[in-house]
């Protein structure tokens, strides 16, 4: 079984972004970029399944600018076998990403597609579900445990009230949550080896996908900040303040 893992290049999670004062977007010049943290987890999960003999090949795919090759090389250095870069400088919405991924999946025929639960830039939390809908296959979102049987996968999901366990027929799309695993670091020799692993270049047009956005971004701003309040010296003073504010 082949596993397909989409990985997105995003602003590193440690960076505190700034909105441009003219409302035109978020300042991305000279900002550190990394693999979306959820995608590191899905790459790790794919590798563990391969190491456990449940998968034969791990293919990673990214839709983004030429520099997304770095993100793919990181995944290859972690241990993925090969990569597909669907190159575009446009910003591509989840719906179009899902359509391109459908094209990749139709060509690759993976038994399992492991997608991040959410990209930490757009915070959309929808690409995996969209892909499953487009492919007409089962989905299991927010996975904190993944077990592969023959033709099925047993997935424990993080839901609002706790945990839910379901079984899905393969092929399926699984979106991964943060507690699924701890992703490995790529070792220096593996980083060197990753440079030689195969990376195929495509464009959205190769999959016949129109990436024109459906949502027009009219304005981007920073939220109204909240000023720091007062420091209190004791628990008694704290309670007095809270009583004054009418919240206790």
């Amino acid at each position: 079984m082949k596993i397909l893992v989409p990985v997105k290049r995003v602003v590193d999670h440690n960076v505190k972004i700034r909105a441009r004062p003219d409302g035109s977007g978020v300042e991305l010049a000279n900002v550190k970029m990394s693999m979306n943290p959820f995608d590191e987890i899905s790459v790790e999960q794919a590798l563990r399944l391969k190491e456990a003999g449940k998968a034969s090949e791990v293919v990673v795919v990214s839709i983004g600018p030429a520099k997304a090759e770095e993100t793919l090389r990181t995944a290859l250095a972690m241990g993925a076998d090969r990569a597909v870069l669907v190159e575009t400088d446009a910003s591509v919405e989840p719906l179009a990403v899902a359509k391109i991924l459908r094209g990749v999946a139709e060509a690759e025929r993976p038994g399992l597609i492991l997608v991040g639960k959410q990209a930490i830039d757009d915070d959309c939390n929808q690409t995996g579900q969209m892909l499953a809908g487009l492919l007409g296959v089962a989905q299991a979102t927010f996975a904190s445990r993944v077990e592969i049987e023959d033709q099925t996968a047993r997935i424990t999901r993080e839901v609002d009230g706790g945990l839910q366990t379901i079984e899905v027929t393969l092929p399926a799309v699984v979106t991964v949550d943060l507690r699924l695993n701890e992703p490995r670091y790529a070792s220096l020799p593996n980083i060197m080896k990753a440079k030689k692993k195969p990376l195929e270049r495509k464009t959205p047009a190769d999959f016949g996908v129109d990436i024109a956005p459906r949502l027009r971004v009219l304005w981007t701003e920073e939220p109204a900040g909240r000023g720091a309040g007062v420091k209190v010296a004791s628990a008694r003073e704290l309670v007095a303040g809270l009583r004054n504010a009418g919240v206790v």
């Binding site: 919405e93 939390n125 969209m130 609002d160």
Partner: peptide
């Protein structure tokens, strides 16, 4: 969690961006 699970699947099938 439930709506975030199902609505994007619906949106994709309707060919709309959630």
């Amino acid at each position: 969690a439930s709506a975030r699970n199902v609505l994007p699947r619906v949106a994709a099938r309707l060919d709309v961006m959630q």
